[in-house]
Amino acid sequence: MQLRDIAELLNAALLCGEELLDKDVGTVYASDLMSDVLSQVKGHPLLVTGLCNTQVVRTAEMVDIFCVLFVRGKKPDAHTVELARDGMLCLMATDKTMFEVCGILYENGCDG
């Protein structure tokens, strides 16, 4: 599924990385714990998280994740968005909970 379809499904706002919206995402990894992201992520999943700080962007960068979706209405500060822009990452934010987001993505064919 393309990032733009995911954004539409989840009613998510795009914070940066518009040029990546045509990219395909097959798998999803959901966690608030960056330690787990660093130890377990394989491939290039969409990262769904309720944690909202610069280290989310840094973690994504290290493991080659190119899109992060913030849940529960969390919005990162300007510095975090700037960091993501520099690293050519796409950031999105939705008011839905992590449970809702995972349910919707699973129902629409995304794998873990």
């Binding site: 714990l33 330690s35 130890s39 700080n53």
Partner: peptide, 15 residues
């Protein structure tokens, strides 16, 4: 609360 401190730092470095 910053998303770290889960006790995976050194194990991950080794991994």
């Amino acid at each position: 609360s910053m998303g770290f401190g889960a006790g995976m730092g050194l194990p991950n470095m080794k991994k």
